[in-house]
Design a protein around this nucleic acid. Structure first.
Lengths: 186, 186, 186, 186
DNA sequence: CATGAATGAGAATTCATTCAT
DNA sequence: CATGAATGAATTCTCATTCAT
């Protein structure tokens, strides 16, 4: 049943975001997912594999949301702002996903292969940057730099929103996104 | 002896950055530090305390490096670029410190008190942002946002440099830093 | 399975009586009970809890033996002698239970709650003393005193029998019990 | 220096009575005795030896108190009552000594040799019982029985006094002691 | 003699994983 | 397929004892 696998992933995400990987026993995951411990092992060969699959799962969900209404051939600046805005939206709506990504993006538990698979889902964004460079709209910096820079700044935006006591308005978020664009544009 | 405490901190930093907190047993730390397991507990009451002290230690080392040649009353833009450049320099020279900060900046293992103590060491930077706002040189966004944005973007810069195969030149790093400034300046 | 819990209790009783609580590692208990160490923790949350449950267990077994053929309304003296005789019998047949009770009756490891639960099992004896006082058959001393005095003297009897080289005859034991009665009777 | 040895014994007695043998680290004893840990080992080869010497020490102190004004040739009953009364007095004045004896009288930590040495200090009491038997004042029971019986009952007396909320009067204590005599007299 | 820093063996406890039902 | 009792390797931490100063 797909049901059980999904239940395990959901339970793991919630528990792990709060308690961390090592603070969350398989038994607790099983309990939250309303299945037996042994059953988890029908779907995931090990706990390590489970968290890696969860990483892919969460990243795929984000990508699917982000690219749902994304149109490839719109003007670069508009695409860029739309993309960032959608990412921010998603994380504000799904803070647990954000917490999870923050913690496991750099964790040694996530294998190189997993991380690469996660990156592949955002190739459309890379294409956009390439186009931007060709159209000479952004600084002449390495693509990688543009990429991480953009994502890093976006994370900061979300993080500040989620953890600060006085939530910034929608407008300020937009200004923040524009600031990122200002950072890379020519 | 101060020797042993320092040896424990050094060993922990190195091991924990690669293997994570839970992937690093106390016995391994002891071995790498060339002391007995029990000795660690003469200096640190628990493993949790050890990592919190290490956090302070690393952050203090960074702050000391960053503010060594920092002059409070220089023009804002110059100060800003100098500050970011020094941070980047430090992390490129001490990649393990960077990996450690990346992993534990958001980890629940680091207590609120520890994090606050860490922040206090960078008050000079906050002062600079306040001055920048007063002089109306940067966008009218919340200080927190400016702050996390700046640090987030800086991290991306370092991260890209450390993990990409074709290391960007010194010039490109400078351009990256300027890009950050462009992001927040008016 | 009830089997394993019982096996753990039996193993613990035997080992702890000889070696003491702190002289008996959980691993040894597991080995003697023919189970894995972890299995003990399925039945007892901690070593401290284990010894407290064992205390109840042993005391319940004693009470069940002692009151099996006990009839409430027999003459006081007869009841008294019967009771003491049965206690002595039980301990002579189960010397390990005696050793265990001797060591843990006063130990700080046994919680107040556990001790109280143990006392409740011997309320019938207290009733007998009350009746004895009402019938003015025994000295006019506080009940507590009568109680501890009686039990203390009984313990001595058992202890002497178990550890002396020339075991006293059945008759002598009876005389000993009568001596206790003589101590408290008017 | 005799000073230090005595200080160690005093510190150990106090700490061990409250916290138990295994709950009391050597370092704590050293601290309470105002000496270095290593120094303990100049006077006692091991922790086990320390507790055995303490046992002897406490028992000797009790014996010295009990037999201080004891006259060998007084009438048996008077001697007996005096002896018991003095024991009770001592323990009421030194409850820690009582707690210690109660806990370690049956503990596997005290070696057989130590226990025997402790018994030897009370030979005068045994002599009294022999005389009592010769004069046919007490029941014709084995000496050992008389002995343990008497001591067991005395312990109960003290224990009840120390732990009950409504302390029995001096008179009641005397009655209790008489009850013990009544138990063994012909 | 006195000290206390250093040590590492040993203890309780946890938890991923297996496998008989 | 699903289960969860059983397992024991692995982990953190304590503390008696040693020995260089």
């Amino acid at each position: 049943m797909k049901d059980k696998k999904a239940a395990v992933l959901a339970a793991t995400l919630e528990l792990i975001s709060e308690q961390g990987f090592h603070g969350t026993p398989m038994s607790q995951i099983a309990q939250k997912a309303n299945i037996g411990v042994g059953t988890i092992y029908r779907y995931f060969p090990s706990k390590e594999n489970l968290i890696n699959e969860l990483y892919i799962h969460v990243k795929a969900r984000l990508a699917s949301y982000v690219f749902k209404n994304y149109i490839e051939n719109m003007p670069v600046r508009k695409s860029f702002l739309h993309l960032l805005r959608t990412i921010v939206d998603y994380f504000l709506k799904n803070p647990i996903d954000f917490l999870f990504m923050e913690q496991y993006a750099t964790s040694p538990l996530i294998t190189v292969a997993t991380r690469q698979e996660g990156l592949r889902m955002f190739e459309a964004a890379t294409k956009l940057f390439i186009r931007a460079k060709e159209e000479e709209l952004i600084k002449d910096l390495p693509l990688d730099l543009i990429n991480t820079f953009t994502y890093g700044a976006t994370r900061s935006l979300v993080s500040m929103y989620l953890f600060s006591d006085d939530k910034p308005s929608d407008e300020i978020l937009n200004e923040g996104i524009v600031a990122i664009w200002d950072g890379i544009r020519k």
